[in-house]
């Protein structure tokens, strides 16, 4: 391992605190667009180093929530949003939380390496140093040998890994991942999930992960939260007591199936509500 990678490793793992200190906390956070109430008093608290997954029907306001957390959208007055225990008004969140949108949104004129360091570069890091660090991490992200390729030369899974690497290199303690594997085929998706868990266990970032897929939510999360149909609010918050590291065989284990059944019912209920309200 090169010096740079060690440095990053140190940066990322040194302060792995005992799970329990609250990293991010939302209390009655709401948001309306004109007459439409997209988000209705969301209460959610995520501990440091915790992996929380969020599922909900389409159009339930997940993206609104993410945009608020990323600092791109102002919540309605009234609620509170605490980061590390301190109130965080919307503008102050820009650049504090690593945000990975649904699409990879890679820039086609930048190489894999230069896409990966985009956030670091914007943060003012020296390009050469950032590249060196990224180069040393390429293998870990399955991108070795592709450092100087352009995104359009890569497969969907690889592009997603570049986007993840960009998010990781944007060295923030909280990561918001918005359905990062939604567009991948089932096989690639399963590989990526295990790989993400592996990365997470090494770097211990606090992760909030949106997905449509209940299997994915259970397989990845320490907790699974369910969001209601619009107006969105957290209707279920379930701890997943499955041991880690998790193996693919877990997906067919009875305890997994039991959790899945429970969550499926909750989600279905919300989906039916959404269907009744908005149509498919």
């Amino acid at each position: 391992m090169t010096g740079a990678a060690e440095r990053l490793d140190a940066q990322l793992t040194v302060a792995a605190p005992p799970v329990g200190r609250v990293k991010l906390s939302l209390n009655g956070v709401a948001r309306s667009f004109g007459a439409v109430r997209a988000l209705d008093r969301v209460d959610l608290s995520i501990a440091e180093g915790e992996f929380v997954t969020l599922i909900g029907p389409s159009g339930c306001g997940k993206s609104t929530l993410f945009n608020i957390l990323a600092g791109l959208l102002e919540p309605d007055p009234g609620g509170t949003l605490l980061l590390d225990g301190a109130p965080a008004p919307s503008g102050s969140l820009l650049g504090r939380i690593a945000f990975m949108p649904q699409r990879d949104l890679l820039l086609p004129w930048r190489t894999v390496l230069d896409n990966a360091i985009l956030a670091a570069e914007i943060q003012g890091q020296k390009k050469r140093e950032a590249r060196e660090l990224a180069r040393s991490m390429a293998a870990e992200f399955g991108l070795k040998g592709f450092e100087n390729h352009y995104p359009q030369q890569l497969s969907g899974g690889m592009r997603q890994r570049v986007a993840l690497m960009r998010t990781f290199l944007f060295d923030r303690e909280v990561m918001l991942l918005d359905e990062p594997f939604g567009a991948l085929d089932a096989l690639t998706r399963a590989l990526m999930q295990r790989w993400l868990l592996d990365l997470w266990s090494r770097y211990r970032r606090t992760i909030l992960f949106i997905t449509h897929d209940i299997d994915e939510a259970i397989f990845l999360g320490d907790r699974v939260t369910v969001m209601s149909a619009r107006p969105g609010r957290i209707t279920l918050d379930r701890t997943i007591p499955l041991p880690r590291p998790r193996q693919p065989s877990l997906l067919t284990a009875p305890e997994f199936m039991a959790l899945k059944r429970e969550l499926l019912e909750a989600v279905e209920e919300e989906s039916l509500k959404a269907f009744a309200a908005n149509g498919p």
Partner: peptide, 13 residues
């Protein structure tokens, strides 16, 4: 793409 603009802004651009 406004999503790309949002992404870069979330990086602090």
């Amino acid at each position: 793409d406004p999503r790309q603009v949002a992404l870069l802004r979330s990086f602090g651009a």
